[in-house]
Amino acid sequence: MRATSHSARGLALGPDGAREVARTLAEEVPIAITVNGSTQAVMMATPDDLEDFATGFALTEGLARPDQIERIEVIALDQGIEARLWVPDQIAAALGDRRRAMMGPVGCGLCGIDSLDQALRPLPELGAGVRFGSDEVVAATDLLRAWQPLHDRTHAVHAAGFLHPGQAMAMAREDVGRHNALDKLIGALVRAGMDPARGAIVLTSRVSVEMVQKTVLAGCATLIAVSAPTAHALRLAEGAGLTLAAFARRGAVEIYAHPHRIQRRDTDVA
């Protein structure tokens, strides 16, 4: 489709003087998500895995379930890329009040939402999910590092990965936007027939409200992140039954909600 990175040259200034440097920069392009020809959102995103992105975005934003998507077309245009979803007409007709035809910066997961009710939508209560050993949770973000080739080249993208208990990382997706990376991962899981309830989602970012919303709506009961949750994200996780693990790095992790899915070692502090 399009390159995900671009080489650029610059001038580095430091205590030892000036020197030329070469860097690989992550690409971001406007990606329009359309449903039956009507634009629902335009987000700046990394131009790969766009079928996954469209599927995951449709699921986590309530546009359409994966089984309601009849086909996906990814069309490159001069001004950007369109990810075109086709669904039954009655599904498309119900999207009027959720239309989000505006540019969304990569750092924002709620751009274009036009009511507080839509921003803080009620979440379903999660099922039992699966259990993890504390060692697995502590190591989760380190395992994800091996699935970040674009980050290794650019140092400018986030990743979201899927961890099975007792196994290695099963899948991951990258994007300049953390929300986009998560949508790509969720879309990839459902398109591959993998049940998000059978593992944990692992993030290279902080845990904001919309990251909890997307995880819960995907049906995954455990979320592991390298950074902190916001206060309201934690409240949502508690209410939905989501196990929330944060600060998973440097051999440690902090559990903030529903710790019953994480089996502690004998050496863990009570």
Rank of each mutant, 00 (worst) to 15 (best):
G62P: 07
T24D: 15
G80L: 00
V74N: 03
D49P: 07
L50Q: 06
A58K: 04
D89C: 03
E73Y: 05
R100Y: 04
E82C: 03
L85N: 02
T55Y: 04
G62R: 06
P66R: 05
I91L: 02
N36L: 08
P88K: 00
M43P: 08
L85P: 02
Q90M: 05
N36M: 11
T55G: 06
I81T: 07
T46G: 13
L77W: 04
Q79G: 15
L95G: 08
A93M: 05
A26K: 12
R23Q: 14
V87F: 00
P88T: 02
M103S: 12
L59Q: 09
F57D: 02
A101D: 15
L59I: 05
D52L: 02
D49N: 13
R84Q: 06
E61C: 06
Q40C: 13
A58S: 13
A64G: 06
V29S: 10
Q79V: 11
D52G: 06
W86K: 09
E70Y: 02
Q90E: 14
I81W: 00
G96P: 07
G62E: 03
P88L: 00
L85W: 00
S38Q: 14
I81L: 05
F53Q: 05
G37W: 10
G56K: 01
F57K: 07
R99K: 14
I75N: 07
F53I: 03
L50W: 06
P66T: 02
I72D: 04
D78K: 13
L63Y: 13
R98F: 09
P66M: 01
G80H: 01
L63R: 09
A92N: 02
N36T: 10
R100N: 09
E61T: 08
E61I: 00
A64T: 03
N36K: 08
Q90H: 12
E61R: 13
L95I: 07
V42A: 07
